[in-house]
């Protein structure tokens, strides 16, 4: 059978969702942001809520997310996405609201906003991309940088005696009563991507039920910041990031009742 006979519109089994704008993504080759964006949009498309969703873009690499996602977006000051999302959700309770933040945004400058929005139990979805580094500004050390991991402001590796310990903000937030669902996923292999999509679907379904914060952490690579090729950085992430940030559900409502 010739390839031309296979490549026909009726044989399409997968294509990029129409909710992306035509602009090429500004992320580095191999960056997990693109995959995370695509899974988010696929979930919105499946639930058919793209017309009533408001996204809050952070400061960081994904600051231009509103250029790529063809849905209503607002861009918040550094770290303040949960505060903006609170306002949007309270003024328009029928809209689906999500924040999309990196680790420098959510776990460093925005710690107060994050913790208090979670503690109040606001009813929106938080998506947290954790790559252990400040990607956009040049690969500086972030709160989530692993011990011994190199960054441009700790070129000999993070020394926990001087620079403190990495912050597991996801486990921290899971203890708050306002948080309904907490999970940690990744987007480096096909299986991980499918699981991430499922987690995002649950997170938005919880929002429909008005249950409180649904928090999805996505451990991602930063091959430019880590100074590796995309596939090397995915391997490094499996070997080093996953032992410290284990994948899986951290707080699931059904298990809690038992």
């Amino acid at each position: 059978m010739d390839i031309k006979d296979i490549i026909k519109p009726e044989n399409i089994v997968y294509q990029k969702t129409k909710l992306f704008t035509e602009k090429p993504l500004s992320y580095c080759p191999g960056c997990g942001h693109g995959t995370a964006h695509r899974m988010l949009l696929e979930v919105l498309e499946e639930m058919n809520i793209q017309d009533k969703t408001v996204g809050i873009a952070p400061v960081g690499c994904s600051v231009l997310a509103y250029e790529f996602l063809d849905i209503d977006m607002q861009q918040a000051a550094h770290g303040r996405a949960p505060a903006v999302a609170t306002a949007v959700k309270r003024l328009m309770p029928d809209k689906f609201v999500f924040t999309y933040q990196g680790d420098g945004d959510l776990a460093a400058i925005g710690t107060a906003e994050t913790i208090h929005a979670c503690n109040r139990g606001e009813n929106f979805t938080m998506i947290f991309i954790n790559n252990g580094i400040y990607g956009m500004t040049g690969g500086q050390m972030a709160p989530t940088t692993l011990p011994g991991m190199r960054a441009s402001t700790c070129p000999f590796g993070r020394d926990t005696e001087i620079m403190g310990n990495p912050l597991k903000i996801t486990e921290l937030l899971a203890q708050l009563p306002g948080v309904y669902y907490v999970t940690r996923q990744a987007v480096h292999t096909p299986n991980a991507v499918r699981k991430t999509k499922k987690a995002l679907r649950i997170a938005f379904e919880n929002q429909k039920l008005k249950k409180g914060i649904s928090f999805v952490e996505i451990v991602s690579n930063c091959n430019s910041g880590w100074k590796m090729t995309p596939n090397q950085s995915n391997k490094w992430m499996e070997d080093n990031m996953f032992p410290f940030y284990p994948l899986g559900d951290i707080k699931v409502p059904q298990l809690e009742k038992v």
Binding site: I6, I12, V13, F20, P24, L25, R38
Partner: peptide
Amino acid sequence: GCVNCAIVCPDGVITVYRTKV
């Protein structure tokens, strides 16, 4: 046509076609 490549592609540039022979 297992879709694995398209699902991990960060830029979503891959379209997958599948047919039965």
